[in-house]
């Protein structure tokens, strides 16, 4: 979503993005003229008249589970966004009984928070697991 019109979105897709992504952009390119939606999400830069690089993960109940906001010159890390969604999905599937420690990705161990685990994380989880 950006403040550009849907007409400009089409031209950007047709003239440039479709040359990077076969078949063009698969998802909807949303238009937010005037930054009305961006303002509510707190990422619209009124001085510049554009949105900053805000990224929101919204769960099936419409709840914001996470967000990240970057200034314009730095692009996002799509793999990290996907990792976070996988982690939120895992936690949801466990009905909140499991938590994903730092650096978790599918296949790595989760933790089951509870009285027995207090002060004992060091016994079951090592800091090198925080890294790839």
């Amino acid at each position: 979503m950006s403040v550009d019109s849907i007409f400009v979105h089409k031209m950007w897709n047709d003239t440039e993005l479709s040359k990077m992504v076969k078949g063009g952009i698969p998802f909807a390119m949303l238009s937010d003229g005037g930054g009305k939606v961006g303002s509510v999400y707190g990422i619209y830069d009124e001085d510049a008249g554009v949105e900053t690089r805000g990224r929101f993960i919204i769960d099936p109940d419409g709840i914001v589970q996470g967000f990240e906001v970057l200034t314009p010159p730095v692009g996002r890390n799509v793999s990290e966004s996907i990792r976070q969604i996988q982690a939120f999905q895992h936690v949801r599937q466990s009905k909140g009984t499991e938590a994903t420690p730092s650096g978790w990705k599918p296949g790595k161990m989760t933790l089951k928070p509870g009285p027995d685990l207090v002060g004992k994380v060091w016994e079951v989880w090592k800091t090198d697991q925080a890294f790839d």
């Binding site: 950006s2 937010d32 900053t52 919204i58």
Partner: peptide, 11 residues
């Protein structure tokens, strides 16, 4: 699940 991305502008 929805990922909502804002960005400064096309191009």
């Amino acid at each position: 699940w929805v990922v909502l991305c804002f960005y400064p502008g096309d191009y």
